[in-house]
Design a protein around this nucleic acid. Structure first.
Lengths: 229, 229
DNA sequence: CACCAATATTACAATTTCATGACAATGAAT
DNA sequence: ATTCATTGTCATGAAATTGTAATATTGGTG
């Protein structure tokens, strides 16, 4: 699932510049031309981050920021202000109002993206890495969650570690002994055949309905997480 | 409990300037004169925020930043870089290494404080006197009040800090040991199982009537505050 | 096809891990 | 001094997880 960013900005040139660069960096960009529209979009779309112009027709950026923070739906969405006003009192006022950061125009796309990532890393660690994915399976180590498509999957501790190990090394075949070593630990003695049972449990858990089974059995070698059959 | 800030800076003039201003703003300031000392202090004192000079004798600020991020104890402590180098490539490099913000020398004390507040607001909202909210739970760190919907919830001190910690890091799974570290303090010895009991008390207090329980137990891993089951 | 070896599946008992209630110790408030 | 709230620990039962063995199925080979 891509990270969605809402851009509230009235200058079309900037809008297009930002959209182009963010989309190239794999973000989904939604835009609003003024404050009213911005507030509406923000509560409807629940974006992961908001880029907010300081100078807007009708409502000022500062006021938007205040309102976004007040509404429970958007109170926790990080906000980066875009501003031409580089003077210190304004910067301080912006930060005090609840913006998480601000970028002064003219800004370079690279810096904007670096700032976005820095803010996201803080606010939603899950959005900035730490997340493994393979085809439509995703595993988040921070929240310990596994999803297949958008279905939440429950795994026992061992199946979780097993899947994580596979997802950390996709495509690679592991023998039962290797799996026991790296998933169970070098010091535990467990029957190699036990691995079969856990593979079974993992398969059962992640292949809800008739979904394709990405765990490939390699006869007399072991198992692998793999898209090819 | 005051907010503790660790300043890693070799220039004594700056050190004194910063110390004076931060202490006047009610922060507790600890200082280190070089990188080695900084790393040591950081893991021992567990500060709430680190101010890090870019140019340091021996280890560079960037390298310190990297090491702080790598070590689990300090990985989540916000870092603001102090730098004379204002050019963009450096700024980007700093942000990418894991700094949360940077301030260019010479800086005004007012702006430094505003930045500290902004970073803390985003990382540890409670330290910046912010209201926290998660779904229909809200926690006001100023009045020490917790509401579920519009019902006022009474919590003991420990349950309050526990909930605050969860609300500062929603979705994230914490082991009992981690919780003891950050909620009880890194120097207290308490049985890990005691955490269970406090989780129970928190649940009981917060899930009045048949309201959904947002505290998720992650078997053999810990607990998390989470919306979906 | 018939056979063998390897894997899949099932069932079950043992073990871990967690939820819950009770209790004594502590300290603050009256 | 007494009451009350809070806290840490333990004991117990419930629930989830785990390893193993027994049995079924599959794939390859002659």
């Amino acid at each position: 699932m891509k990270t969605r960013i809402l851009l509230i900005e009235d200058d079309e040139n900037i809008t297009e510049l930002v959209r182009y660069n963010l989309e190239r960096s794999n973000y989904v960009v939604d835009t609003a031309m003024d404050g009213e529209e911005g507030l509406m979009r923000a509560s409807e779309e629940a974006p992961d981050l908001i880029l907010l112009d300081w100078m807007l027709p009708n409502l000022s950026g500062l006021e938007i920021c205040r309102r976004l923070r007040r509404s429970p739906e958007t109170a926790n969405v990080p906000i980066i202000m875009l501003t031409a006003r580089a003077d210190e009192p304004d910067r301080i006022r912006g930060l005090e109002t609840g913006a998480d950061d601000y970028v002064t125009k003219p800004f370079s796309p690279k810096e904007l993206i670096a700032r976005i990532q820095a803010v996201l890393r803080r606010v939603r660690p899950a959005l900035a890495g730490q997340k493994l994915s393979f085809e439509d399976i995703s595993l988040d180590n921070v929240s310990h969650r596994v999803m297949r498509g958008d279905v939440l999957i429950h795994l026992g501790p061992t199946e979780y570690r097993l899947l994580r190990h596979f997802m950390e090394n996709p495509g690679r075949v592991f023998s039962r002994e290797q799996l026991l070593d790296s998933v169970w630990g070098h010091d535990v003695y467990v029957e190699p055949r036990t691995v079969d049972v856990h593979i079974r449990r993992l398969r059962k858990a992640i292949n809800v309905n008739g979904l394709t089974d990405y765990i490939r059995t390699v006869r007399s070698a072991g198992y692998a997480l793999d898209s090819r059959r």
